[in-house]
């Protein structure tokens, strides 16, 4: 189901880990659907855990995480990428993990998450 079916009911926010911590509508799945409908491309689409909890509660059965992935692809094509994202990919290529060089018994200094 596409984003045109979004009625902005807000049920997607219920278990969204980003919204529950940040309490910002703009960072919530509903906020992102509003931005998508307005065709606004922004790095805010990287602030999503792709956990799909929003999809569990969406009455219109919108594949929200798929929509966000598509936008991320477009953002990368347009060179709109976060520094954290670049670093994470570089670390995976170089060290096989997103944290960079890990010394035995030590916690990585920078923690990146996809």
């Amino acid at each position: 189901m596409g984003i045109e079916k979004c009625s902005r009911c807000g049920f997607c926010k219920v278990n969204c880990p980003i919204f529950r911590v940040m309490l910002s509508e703009t960072l919530s799945p509903r906020g992102k659907m509003i931005l998508l409908k307005k065709e606004i491309m922004d790095e805010v689409f990287y602030i999503c855990a792709l956990c799909k909890s929003c999809e569990e509660n969406c009455p219109a059965e919108i594949k929200i995480s798929e929509e966000i992935k598509k936008i991320r692809e477009k953002l990368i094509k347009n060179k709109k990428e976060t520094e954290a994202n670049k670093k994470m990919i570089e670390n995976i290529r170089k060290f096989g993990n997103p944290f960079g060089k890990i010394e035995e018994g030590k916690i990585p200094r920078e923690l990146y998450c996809c």
């Binding site: 902005r8 009911c9 703009t26 307005k38 805010v44």
Partner: peptide
């Protein structure tokens, strides 16, 4: 921020409004 202004112009109704800024 422009992004917040866009998002907070809505609730669950079909109306679209306009805001100058948002306070929490």
């Amino acid at each position: 921020s422009d992004l917040d202004k866009v998002v907070y112009a809505f609730d669950s109704s079909y109306l679209e409004g306009k805001t100058n800024f948002i306070i929490w």
